[in-house]
Design a protein around this nucleic acid. Structure first.
Lengths: 208, 208
DNA sequence: AATTCCGGAGAACAGTTGTTAACTGCATGG
DNA sequence: CCATGCAGTTAACAACTGTTCTCCGGAATT
């Protein structure tokens, strides 16, 4: 509301971000449901009670991490789906985009893959809602495509969901092969392209 | 090795199973990495120290749960893939089979979905290995199919992986809708069939 | 019938956890 | 320039954790 002049609020959000970062780091080797509040504050170098100034609980922090991890993905959607010149080229570009995102934000990808079916209900719901929004956007984008003429609403929804799930599967597969021999990483890219291509083929002949 | 004389070993495996069952129950609301040894023994009604007679740690118990949850799935593979009379009918049967399994063993499905990307590395590896075996079996089954003529090895591997991942996605989606209004459950079944059908279509026209 | 084996119980340990309360110092708004 | 607000601190709490050692009773072996 107020015009937030800021030295005060700036410092607050600085430690808030430090807590988020530290938590994300700790979550590379455990799940959110085992993440302790003290563990996080200790990693940041701040008193345990300071945690409460920013989050009600670690579950709450988890929900905030969902926003951070998935919020930045929305712009990527349009980029991935947009111009369709050559079909194989669009696929190659999409896979490259995913690979780049995984390399740039591995901890975020790991967090989403891990907590999507994880043990903390509010976090699961937050992820599910964000992914549903993704699916909506993808569906809207698909509907504008010329090749979608004659597709039912349920068909479009199905395809959008398939793309979103496939994106996540591919991302977490790339994550696993992040520090693997390059040959395996190449194979992963190849498999991802092939799978998207098969979906593409199925899409072209859907109305036969 | 020995000829298993019995009353002794029987009781031992009985409490071992009780520990596995109790753990599986507790894991419906948390992740393995936050599951405490004492928590499990308390649920069974035995002393904490008794746990060590059966498992080195809760991680160890997790690996055992992977065997229990996925071991019984191997027979299902052949049933799903086998006779191909009508294509849509095979899909309907496969989806029905998945739905039945989810309804019969929801906790097992939840455990696999949760810990596949979970915070315990040995458990992740155990799941990955079992799923790789599944993919191998599916691939072998696909290779016998007449429509697989001309498919490269990489193509077959890709398709097998797609099927396995799709099976898991569908299962965990069914799990979410287990106690949802029937209308939503119908929609879930419809979406699952549609997605499999699209893969089927893509498969038929793969070599165009 | 005597002896070994072993699943489980019991007690104790040092260390950790989330949460409360009352505090301190400093940027903020009057 | 002074009073308020508020991010962060310190101290303490009861409850819990994994692990070790010692012991017990009954099945298994001989």
């Amino acid at each position: 509301m107020s015009h937030t002049p800021g030295v005060r609020q700036a410092q607050k959000q600085k430690t808030r971000q430090a807590l988020l970062d530290a938590a994300l780091g700790l979550l590379e080797e455990q799940s959110l449901s085992s993440l302790g509040l003290r563990e996080v504050t200790r990693a940041v170098g701040v008193a345990p009670t300071a945690f409460y100034r920013h989050f009600r609980s670690t579950d709450d922090l988890g929900v905030a991490l969902v926003e951070e991890a998935l919020g930045s993905l929305h712009p990527m959607i349009r980029t991935t789906m947009s111009p369709a010149e050559d079909d194989d080229e669009r696929i190659a570009r999409a896979v490259e985009l995913i690979a780049g995102h995984v390399a740039a934000h591995p901890a975020h990808v790991r967090f989403i893959a891990r907590e999507r079916h994880g043990g903390v209900q509010p976090v699961r719901r937050a992820i599910r809602e964000q992914l549903a929004r993704f699916a909506e956007e993808v569906k809207a984008e698909l509907a504008t495509d010329a090749s979608a003429a004659g597709w039912s609403d349920a068909d479009l929804r199905m395809l959008a969901g398939l793309y979103v799930d496939q994106m996540l599967i591919t991302a977490s597969y790339f994550l696993e092969t992040l520090d693997a021999p390059e040959e395996e990483r190449r194979r992963a890219v190849g498999t991802a392209r092939r799978q998207l291509r098969l979906i593409s083929v199925g899409r072209r002949h859907w109305l036969d």
